[in-house]
Design a protein around this nucleic acid. Structure first.
Lengths: 339, 339
DNA sequence: CCGGTTTCTGTTAGCGTTAACATCACGGGA
DNA sequence: TCCCGTGATGTTAACGCTAACAGAAACCGG
C-alpha cells in the first residue's frame, strides 16, 4: 500500500515530503510555532497521523540539551513512605511535562547514591531528586556533577542543595505533648534505626518536650521500622509492667507490632498503655484499637520537591538553595487515653 | 587552569585532543573494543577522568537506536502490590543494565494507558512493561506501536503480548479449600472491584472449589481493596450472626477492616469466624489475630517480566508471546480454626 | 506604486556519538 | 625481497532533530 511499506518508522522528512513542505515546517507545527499558516498546519497534521508519525525525543534532546526527564534516586520503594513520595514526585513531574527515571537502591550508602546519580547524569536528566533519608546517603549530594539541579527529600542540609522535608521534630513534639497532656508522667520512645535522619528528628522532638516539661527521659528502644522490631520492643515493654504508661513509636508499622505484643501479653491499649504512632499509613485507622498517630503528607513533599527542582532548572541555575518544610498533622484515634 | 575553563561539559573530542588520539579511539575504549593498544587505552582513560568526562547517552541512543531504557506503566504505586512489582522490575532492569522510566496513572483506562505508552515510545524506550490489572487497561495493549516489545503484568491475555502473573485462581483455591478442610460448611467471599482481573480470578477459584465440593455458593460482597471497604463488609457480615463461619477476603487490607469490624461487634476470630486474606503484606503477620493468607511473590513477578521483555528486545522481535505464571503460596497463621 | 515591514517557508549547519570504510605500520611466508 | 593479512588508528558520514539565517510573498502607509 503506497510508498510506506518499509519497516523503519517515519521521520520528519517523510512527513514533510507527504505534506509537500520542508522538514523545518513540520518541526514548527510540532512545536506550536506561531508563524505557520493554518492551512499548512492542517496539511502537516494530516500527514502526521496518516503516517502514524511520532517525534523522536532523543534526537530533539540532543540538540536542545533538554531531555525533559527528571531522575529520582530512592531507597526501598516498597515502603509506604518512599512509595508515596515517589508517587507524588511522578505525578507532579508529569503534570509539568517531565518524565521520571527511577533508580531504587537496595542498600543505601554514599557510593550507591553516587553511582545512581552518575548513571542519571549520563542519561541526560535535567535534574535529580534524591530521597535520602539517611546521613550516609545525604552526604552523597556533596559531589553532584557541577551544574546539575538537584533537590534532597527528607535529607540533611548543609551543603548547597535544596531540601524538602516533613518537620519531624514538630511531629514528635505533637505526639509527646499529647501524651503528657493526657496526664502521663513520662513517655517512652521506640525509635527508628540510628543512621536515619527521620529517626533522629523524632528522637529530638520527643526528648525536647520531655526535658522542657521537667520529666525524666526513659531509656529508648530502637527498631528498624518493621512490625517485627516493634513486636520485640513491645515484649520488652510489657515485661516492665506498670512502669510504662505511654509510648511514642517512630512509625505505624512498629506500632502495629507493639500492639500485637501487648495483646499477647494481656496489656490493654489504651487502658494500661497509650500509644502514638507516626506516618498514618492507610491501615492505621483499622488497627485494634485505631491508632492515634502523626500524619505525614508524602504527596505534598513530592510535589513541593518538584516545584523547587523545576524552578531551579527553568531559571538556569544560580538560585539560592531553599529549605522547605511540610508540617505534620496530629490524628487522634483510639490508642491513647488519660492516665 | 589549562584550557578547560569553559562551562560546557567535555565531549569525546575534548578527551581525544587531550589524549592525542581521534574521538573514535575514545569511543572504542569506552565500548571495550578489542583493537586498542593497552597503552593507548590507559592514556585515554587518564584523559577521561582528568576532564571528568561522562559519555552522552542521548547522542549514543540516537545513532544506535537503543536507549537502554525500559518504560513502566502502572497504577497507583502507593499500594503494596504495584509498589513491590515495580520495585522488582526496577531491580531486574538495572541488573541487566537498563534504566527505568515510570508513568504512574491516577485512574486507569484505555486512553490513559495509551497516552502513557505513546509518551514512552516517543521517549525512545526499548520496551514497555504494563502493570495492567484491569480489563480496560489490558485492552490498551492491543494498540501498541508496531514492533514495540512489551509485557503485561497481571494482565489479561488474548492479543499478541506476553503476560506474567500470579495464579490468582490457584490462590483462591488454596484459601477456599483450606477453609473447607477445617470443616466449614461453606465460605463467604469479599471480592475486589469488578473490573479487576485479579478480583475475577479470585472469584473464579473460590466458586470453583465450592461447586466442586457441592457446597452452596453464598452471595458475594464487593469491596475496593481498601481497609474501609473491608470494614463495611465486616459490619454486614457480623449482622448475619451464626450464618457465616468462614470468609475468604480478596486482599489483606480489606481483611484488616473486617477484623476491626468483627472486634467492634464482638465477633471472635477465629473462634466464631475464620478469615483468610490475600497478598501477605508485611503487616499481616501482626494483625490480631495474625492473618492466614495467600502470599504473592511480587518481586518474582517483576523479575520474570523483565526476563521476558529483555528476551524479546535482544532477539529483535519475532518471538512467540509467552504466558508465565508465578505460583502463590499458602501461609497459615492464626485467623483460621476448625469448625 | 514603491520601500519597508511582517509573515511564512526553505536551506544549511550543527548537537555528540557510533558505523563503515580508509589508511598505515608491521610481521611472516613465498 | 615482495606481498598480503592483521592489528591499530584515523576520517567521513550518518542518526533525526532544532537553531539560525536567508529568501519569498504579502501587506501597508505615504
Amino acid at each position: 500500500m503506497g510508498p510506506n511499506v518499509d519497516r523503519r518508522p517515519p521521520v520528519m522528512a517523510d512527513v514533510a515530503r507527504l505534506a509537500g513542505v520542508s522538514h523545518q515546517t513540520v518541526s514548527r507545527v510540532l512545536n506550536d510555532h506561531p508563524n505557520v499558516r493554518a492551512e499548512t498546519r492542517t496539511r502537516v497534521m494530516r500527514a502526521i497521523d496518516q503516517l502514524g508519525y511520532r517525534r523522536n525525543l532523543v534526537a530533539r534532546a540532543l540538540v536542545t540539551k533538554h531531555s525533559r526527564t527528571l531522575g529520582v534516586v530512592s531507597f526501598d520503594t516498597t515502603l509506604y513512605g518512599p512509595a508515596s513520595t515517589v508517587y507524588g514526585i511522578e505525578q507532579a513531574a508529569r503534570d509539568a511535562g517531565y518524565f521520571v527515571s527511577i533508580v531504587s537502591l537496595r542498600t543505601i550508602d554514599r557510593a550507591g547514591v553516587n553511582d545512581a546519580i552518575g548513571y542519571l547524569a549520563e542519561q541526560g536528566v535535567d535534574g535529580i531528586v534524591v530521597v535520602a533519608p539517611q546521613r550516609s546517603a545525604a552526604r552523597a549530594l556533596d559531589d553532584l556533577p557541577a551544574g546539575m539541579p538537584a533537590v534532597a527529600v527528607e535529607g540533611w542540609h548543609q551543603g548547597d542543595v535544596s531540601v524538602v522535608s516533613v518537620d519531624q521534630v514538630e511531629g514528635a513534639r505533637l505526639a509527646t505533648s499529647h501524651l503528657l497532656e493526657l496526664g502521663h508522667e513520662t513517655v517512652w520512645h521506640i525509635s527508628g534505626p540510628a543512621d536515619w535522619l527521620e529517626a533522629e528528628g523524632r528522637i529530638d522532638g520527643w526528648r525536647a518536650v520531655l526535658t522542657a516539661a521537667g520529666r525524666p527521659v526513659p531509656g529508648m528502644l530502637t527498631g528498624d521500622w518493621s512490625p517485627r522490631s516493634g513486636y520485640r520492643a513491645g515484649k520488652e515493654l510489657a515485661a516492665m509492667a506498670g512502669d510504662v504508661t505511654a509510648v511514642f513509636v517512630a512509625n505505624d508499622q512498629m506500632a502495629l507490632g507493639l500492639l500485637r505484643a501487648f495483646t499477647e501479653e494481656g496489656v490493654k491499649v489504651p487502658e494500661q498503655i497509650s500509644i502514638v504512632g507516626f506516618d498514618d499509613i492507610p491501615e492505621s485507622e483499622f488497627f485494634s484499637p485505631p491508632l492515634t498517630t502523626i500524619r505525614q503528607d508524602f504527596g505534598a513533599v513530592g510535589r513541593r520537591s518538584i516545584d523547587v527542582l523545576l524552578r531551579q532548572i527553568e531559571s538556569g541555575e544560580g538560585l539560592p538553595h531553599e529549605r522547605l518544610v511540610v508540617p505534620p498533622q496530629f490524628v487522634l484515634r483510639g490508642s491513647t487515653a488519660a492516665r
